[in-house]
Nucleic acid binder design. Structure first.
Lengths: 231, 231
DNA sequence: CCGACTTTTCGAACATGTTCCGAAAGTAGC
DNA sequence: GCTACTTTCGGAACATGTTCGAAAAGTCGG
């Protein structure tokens, strides 16, 4: 099990350390992956290419990362660390909204987010550089007067909404890269689906707007109101 | 491009039809896929196994389905057709909630839903047996007094929330099959993440409850209220 | 019966993520 | 120097989804 050892790279034998000396490190892998993505695009980031970039065997990578999802989560953690944390508003409600928006923005600017968002226990793999957003949401709900259970509910609802938005956004973006922008391929039968047929030709236009913040505020307000009214 | 021809299977030459006679059909493929899933579980549904079940070459399948995602969407459409449509409440708000809940339930009882939920333009691939839920939501918003744009917004928000819930649910279920049920693998540093540390040991318990309906109602109420207040 | 045309079938091949397992390359004790 | 022991490396192999191209098996017009 490779501990996050302090050695960055080819320090021959940092201490009384036994075993074959490693030719690479986790930090080097992350750097190479980033290089590869910046140069060729994130679709080109494969295990074998990454190994080639490092000049090592493909399977060697699996001694430093658990699997590809794990690698992407590590990169996301590193990325969020660079983003830094904004100063959050003092009002609990505004703080929740700000943290959730930061969460969305971080994932939205991460085009391959959809790849790992579906990973098992994704939230549990994040480190403190990303978890401050979760903390801020739960803390905000707490400060507003929610019980612990209600605070967790607030986060879960926001999380569902955010995951769905990022995922749909990523996939429609990927589709727009090929087809013209149209969500539905063919028109609807006005007999059976009258309302959908009526908005058919404007759907793409409507769906193009970013309604995440509006929906978020509505959700947060509703959750907080309901939670505290029940006390 | 194989049209949805009426031929179910090995009708030798239904009409003046040219070309090599097909040895299988889309309907047979769907039936075999279902058989395979019922017998061995949905993880075992692979292209090659499916072809073997049908006694045909693996690549032959690609003349009847576009790809595996397409196959799963076809199966979902077939499944929703069997589910039938509930009688919806007359009150617009209740109708929206009922349709969204039906949407969630259909996907939740579909353990491999997460596989295709991330497919490009997923909603655009559904047929009328599934789209009635979308229609009902848009119609409900319309009847409540929303503008077309607002109605689309209502659906989109619900859709994000639903997709996220189904996806997270599916993945935590998959994880629970291996590990004990714990979302976070290790405890939090009480210094940096105090609120998360405080609820750490109760998180799994809280997260186990089904809060989808509650969050949905809050969201729908908020969206409808805000939309009509702006007229 | 024969050649043109059309549609379907399917084996070979490719890239991918990942597991297995033996080899390599060090240190520690003697 | 020699023998453990430990850790890392990496090639072979596997299953997966999918593409390509050539062969097969029909119909149609003569």
């Amino acid at each position: 099990m490779p501990r996050p050892s302090a050695a960055s790279a080819a320090a021959p034998a940092p201490q009384g350390r036994t075993g074959r000396p490693p030719v690479t490190s986790r930090a080097e892998i992350l750097a190479a992956a980033r290089r590869l993505i910046d140069r060729d695009g994130w679709e080109k980031l494969t295990i074998r290419r990454l190994a080639a970039e490092l000049g090592i065997g493909a399977t060697t990578l699996y001694h430093h990362i658990r699997n590809k999802d794990d690698l992407l989560v590590l990169m996301l953690n590193q990325y969020t660390a660079e983003l830094g944390r904004p100063t959050l508003p003092s009002d609990p409600r505004d703080r929740i909204v700000a943290a959730a928006t930061a969460m969305r923005d971080a994932l939205a600017s991460w085009p391959w987010a959809a790849e790992i968002l579906t990973a098992d226990g994704f939230v549990g793999l994040l480190d403190e550089n990303a978890l401050w957003m979760v903390e801020a949401i739960v803390a905000g709900a707490d400060d507003y007067g929610c019980t612990p259970a209600q605070s967790v509910d607030v986060f879960r609802g926001i999380w569902y909404y955010t995951v769905g938005e990022v995922l749909v956004r990523a996939n429609t973006a990927r589709r727009r890269a090929q087809d013209p922008d149209r969500v539905f391929s063919e028109a609807f039968d006005p007999e059976k689906l009258p309302h959908l047929a009526a908005v058919f030709d404007r759907w793409a236009q409507f769906a193009q707007r970013d309604t995440y913040p509006e929906g978020l505020r509505i959700f947060v307000d509703g959750m907080l109101a309901k939670a505290t009214s029940r006390l």
